[in-house]
Design a protein around this nucleic acid. Structure first.
Lengths: 252, 252
DNA sequence: AATTGCCAACTGGTCGGACCAGTTTTTCAG
DNA sequence: CTGAAAAACTGGTCCGACCAGTTGGCAATT
């Protein structure tokens, strides 16, 4: 453990322990350097690390300040690179949707072909839950529905891949739920799309199922893109708290 | 936005775009400083920021390495349970081909849309190698060609997913090479398909590229299925050694 | 010939001082 | 007293030096 790590750790402790409140200014780099008996370069490196974690914000000529949006719910996942990945690079969300479109399309197709009675039962159950949940907090039911379909594809590779993307998928699902569902007409569109997927699978229509699933994912992406372009403030989803109230624990 | 922020952003983008894979070593601080025309201090600050976000890890005396940013779609290596799954159930090979068909189709489409001059150069190089290699031992060139295309898609998620499936993909590629290429007419078909994919991408025809790539993967699967059904002794490929004589160690 | 051991050349870690560039405070001329 | 210049902050960037782990090759030893 290097000195800069140690410094950043001490500073973070100081902040979290309440010694420094959100929005408060922290001592200048030169002061910290003198006080802690290290070079200014070290201080700067430590500050950059905290900056990377979103703990502080610095402004040229003014100083560094404790970020107001501290991990209030101290969910470890909040520091997850994933959150920053999406926060810093919104494009990544669309990258994921591009992949999802293909994978979920294929999953739906296979599910329509291969679903057993048990699979159909599970899918139906998930669909019922999805239908009967508060639209504003059904990120998990939504994801559960999609997952049931994937599992019905009986393609272990597909299951494995989608499972690896689980956390990220939950993010996109939440993003869509949080941004799209409040808009009545969009909510209905999505509902309709879910139903189409469901029916196509249950009635064993592979190509229809694939088409519906792909259209669904594409719709989500296009809608969010449109919203973003319109300057609407898109709700950035954090990993630590979602509409369901539960954190996104790492997949097993 | 300061220079260090810009640098850290560029590095992250580089990593995400697949230019640097998880676990891979990134250039030394002095090299980066020289290459990007900034001082080493700036590089260190940028690296500390990425470190704070968990994007990289640095080790004294060794260097900085890309952390596994994305929630592992773990690399299916030799010891992986899934590898055994594959060994025992040949069907898994077709499961993988099903997934590959979608993913590589999408990759080809995006590559045709987004490939930069550099990408085209890399793809062309890979294609040349593929053309001029002994058909019986070109599993790696074959895979290299496909990989070049994937990277040209500029979709980090896609790159990551395919990368996680890399070892298994090498298996299918080897399986196809070992079984299909010895049959003259099939070898020519595959050659032709590769050329089609290549040309569609180079001439910027997205849908054609997707179609060609999907058809290619499908052809491989169908051919092997046919062979197997005909009772031909299908060459089983092991994970630890391939036709090139080299193990499936991660490429540099 | 094989092995051991050491040294040179990497790598990151730390330092101090210099200078630039914004921001705030002080000062002093009008 | 007012307002503008100037001084005294703040962070941002650079340089060159040196310390400290790591590694690989070469040489001396066995």
């Amino acid at each position: 453990m290097g000195i800069s790590q140690e410094i950043s750790y001490r500073l973070e402790r100081l902040i979290l322990d309440g010694g420094l409140a959100p929005g408060q200014k922290i001592p200048s780099e030169r002061q910290l350097a003198a006080r802690l008996g290290v070079s200014r370069a070290i201080i700067r490196e430590a500050l950059h690390e905290l900056q990377g974690r979103g703990v502080i914000q610095t402004h040229h000529g003014k100083g560094s300040f404790v970020a107001s949006i501290l991990p209030a719910t101290e969910d470890l996942d909040d520091r997850s690179p994933l959150a920053h990945l999406f926060a810093g690079h919104p494009r990544t969300l669309y990258d994921l949707l591009e992949v999802r479109e293909q994978l979920e399309g294929q999953a739906a197709l296979l599910a329509a072909q291969r679903a057993t009675a048990m699979d159909r039962h599970r899918i139906t159950k998930a669909f019922r839950v999805l239908e009967s949940t508060d639209p504003l907090s059904n990120a998990r039911p939504d994801h559960g529905f999609h997952q049931a379909i994937v599992e019905a594809s009986h393609n272990p590779i597909l299951v494995h891949v989608l499972n690896g993307l689980k956390n990220m998928m939950l993010l996109t699902v939440q993003a869509s739920v949080a941004n799209l569902n409040p808009r009545e007409e969009m909510r209905r569109s999505i509902m309709r799309q879910h139903k189409q997927i469901y029916q196509a699978i249950m009635t064993g229509k592979p190509t229809a199922a694939r088409k519906a699933a792909m259209a669904h994912v594409r719709f989500v992406g296009d809608s969010m893109r449109t919203l973003e372009r319109q300057g609407a403030k898109v709700i950035r989803v954090s990993l630590s708290a979602d509409a369901t109230g539960r954190g996104l624990t790492p997949s097993a």
